[in-house]
Simulated assay, not measured.
Amino acid sequence: MSAFEELVEAHGSALLGYASRLTRGDHHRAEDVVQETWLRAWRNLDRMTEDRGSVRAWLMRVAHNIVVDQYRSRRARPTEVEMPEGDPTSVPGPADEVLNRVVVGSVLEALPPTHRSTVVEVYFADRTAAGAAEVLSVPVGTVKSRVHKALRVLRAELPAPAALEAA
């Protein structure tokens, strides 16, 4: 029997029991901890002698450190979130695009022409306030106030998302 096999024979069950307690009874996780502990012991086999200190205490300390490292790494990772229902990679179909255009078009009709043209320049032509002001030949402050007022009207006129899904 090799020195490593003797080490496993002498301390294996105690190490697994200790790892099980550290992992609160999670047997699979405890086995992973023990396996990692044995790997580290195998790498340091030349130092695994009683004249250098308690081998069992060294094994227990290594197992403890592995569990602490796992705990810390789990806390450092972001929390997992549930995937939304349905296919998150689905692309809206042509019918959805038509519906969106009809809804947006009818809601934009509720705006005064000056506000509508400002919203179109800022959001649909993707211009900055300064760029829209230059195209519309108005001051930048006028563009900002028109957009603000237009968005207030649009929020009031736009149907709720649940109403859009039901349509």
Rank of each mutant, 00 (worst) to 15 (best):
G141A: 11
V68R: 00
R56W: 08
V135M: 10
E121V: 05
P84T: 08
V91N: 02
T89C: 07
P113A: 05
V104Q: 05
S90R: 06
E165Q: 04
H28T: 10
E85Y: 14
Y123N: 11
R29E: 04
R47E: 03
V119C: 10
L15G: 01
Y123L: 14
G131N: 08
Q70S: 08
L154V: 15
A163G: 11
D69N: 15
E109M: 14
V102N: 12
M60V: 01
L39G: 15
E109W: 06
R21M: 12
V68D: 07
A150P: 13
R146Y: 03
R29Y: 02
V33C: 07
L151G: 00
R101H: 09
Q70W: 06
E109C: 13
G93I: 03
Q35C: 04
L151R: 10
T128W: 03
L59S: 01
V153R: 13
I66K: 05
E121Q: 14
T142E: 06
L111S: 02
P139A: 06
M1Y: 09
P84C: 01
R47T: 07
D126S: 10
L7T: 08
V135Q: 15
D46K: 15
G17I: 05
A162L: 03
P113K: 04
P159Q: 01
R43E: 10
N65G: 05
M1T: 02
V8R: 01
V34R: 09
G131A: 09
V81L: 11
T49Q: 08
P94S: 11
S20F: 05
T142V: 09
A41K: 02
